[in-house]
Lab assay of single mutants.
Amino acid sequence: MEVRTIKVFTTVDNINLHTQVVDMSMTYGQQFGPTYLDGADVTKIKPHNSHEGKTFYVLPNDDTLRVEAFEYYHTTDPSFLGRYMSALNHTKKWKYPQVNGLTSIKWADNNCYLATALLTLQQIELKFNPPALQDAYYRARAGEAANFCALILAYCNKTVGELGDVRETMSYLFQHANLDSCKRVLNVVCKTCGQQQTTLKGVEAVMYMGTLSYEQFKKGVQIPCTCGKQATKYLVQQESPFVMMSAPPAQYELKHGTFTCASEYTGNYQCGHYKHITSKETLYCIDGALLTKSSEYKGPITDVFYKENSYTTTIK
């Protein structure tokens, strides 16, 4: 009895394709271990004539594949690729409408935090270190965002349907971005203890939790000093293409032309909904596939993004 075979390709990165001759009487799992086709788990399936010449994702289970996976995804987590594939199996079914010149995501599976993050990423200057993220990001900007969303979920250790947080998501993504040249110098002034300067680099240099107003941050924000008295913390120097200011959701007025974009969060910790506000020729609110415009805006804002380049204080 002759062994019926077909020729397929296996890959971990969709760049390096490895030619395989597979036995049609055995499952993919018996031949390769966990195997995925377009995100779908085909591990328990036997090869079919229609699979001839198709590319299958496999887990990096030998040295060659491990090197290829690390170079593309910059992670050695053995569960990463499987999590990416199972997320992709959902995100490829989502709709990605162009809204006001940006790629958004039609609401499904509690994905409003991903839509808000995706919209924000198209408006701030950011370059990702893992080629996987950078490639998928370019495709997302062009309207094909399924891979990018699935990668975000995998890097953030999230599953489809789980509630997510924009600030946490951005923080994970910033860790995989090139923020080497970003720098922030802060000064804390206390009447009792004097003053202390701190220099922050990388992710810490672009994120701040405690106030939404970048102007206020430049002037000074009140913080408790270690001595128990009130101290003032203010920005001395900022070198970065953008800054992200966050605070627990509270009524906040966004003035046209003073910011790049913002995240609105309605609801409580267990259950809520994100919308995205962007400042173009007027203010726009993007909620999944829905767009509304207004000249002014007041609502429960939790993150505001500002364009920056270089700032030095005039406070002496």
Rank of each mutant, 00 (worst) to 15 (best):
T5Y: 13
I301E: 03
D287K: 01
R66G: 10
I286V: 10
T75M: 08
S50K: 13
D287V: 01
C193K: 01
K183R: 14
C261S: 02
E125V: 04
A142T: 13
V189A: 13
H48P: 13
C193Q: 01
L283D: 00
S171N: 15
K95Y: 05
E162Q: 11
Q230I: 15
C271I: 10
W107T: 02
L59W: 08
Y155C: 01
T19R: 12
N100Q: 11
V3P: 13
D77P: 05
D62N: 14
V188P: 03
R4M: 15
T192F: 10
S181V: 07
E162L: 00
Y72I: 07
I301G: 00
P241F: 02
L283G: 01
H176V: 08
G164R: 02
K7Q: 08
N110A: 03
R139Q: 12
A289S: 13
Y96V: 02
L179K: 05
Y274Q: 03
I124R: 04
E125D: 13
H18R: 10
E308L: 10
C149A: 09
A140C: 13
Y137N: 04
F32M: 11
E2K: 11
V160A: 08
I45Y: 11
G220S: 05
G53I: 06
K307C: 14
P47I: 06
L151S: 04
V185D: 01
K219H: 09
W94E: 05
N187C: 15
L114C: 02
K191D: 15
R66K: 14
G267M: 06
E296V: 12
S25E: 09
T159M: 12
N157M: 07
R141C: 12
N61D: 09
K280R: 14
L200R: 07
K158L: 03
E264M: 10
S294F: 14
Y214Q: 02
P47M: 05
G33P: 07
T91G: 03
V221L: 11
F242M: 00
K54S: 11
F70R: 08
S213I: 02
L290T: 14
N16T: 09
G164K: 04
L37E: 14
K293I: 09
P130H: 04
Q175D: 07
C182S: 07
T302W: 00
K298R: 10
L102I: 09
P249R: 00
I277N: 00
C227D: 01
L151Y: 05
Q238K: 02
H51P: 05
I45R: 12
G220K: 03
L179E: 01
G272V: 00
A247Y: 02
K233S: 12
K54A: 13
V22Q: 05
R83F: 05
R139T: 11
V166W: 02
N100H: 13
E144F: 09
I45E: 14
M245T: 01
Q30W: 10
T199Q: 10
S213T: 01
Q238S: 01
E2H: 08
G143C: 03
T27R: 10
N61P: 06
C112K: 05
Q251V: 12
Q230N: 11
G161E: 03
M26S: 08
L200W: 06
K316D: 15
P78R: 12
V188N: 05
N49H: 15
F174L: 11
S310C: 10
E52C: 11
A177R: 03
A177H: 03
Y214I: 12
D135E: 13
A40W: 12
L186R: 02
E204S: 08
Y137L: 12
R167L: 00
F80L: 06
L37Q: 11
A69W: 07
C285E: 12
V58D: 00
E144G: 08
M24T: 14
Y284W: 14
H273Y: 00
E296P: 13
Q31T: 12
N61F: 14
S79A: 13
I286E: 00
K127R: 11
F32A: 07
P47Y: 05
T76N: 08
L200G: 01
G29D: 10
Y137E: 05
N49Y: 11
Q30V: 12
K92P: 04
W94Q: 05
C271Q: 10
T198A: 10
K218F: 03
Y137H: 07
N309T: 14
K298D: 11
A247F: 03
D63P: 08
A262S: 02
M24R: 09
S246M: 04
V189W: 09
E168I: 07
G202Q: 02
I6H: 07
R66Q: 10
S263Y: 02
T27M: 13
E71P: 03
T314C: 03
A289F: 06
A247W: 01
A117C: 11
T314G: 15
Q123H: 07
S279D: 15
T314E: 12
S25N: 12
Y252F: 12
P248A: 10
T278W: 04
A115D: 06
G267W: 08
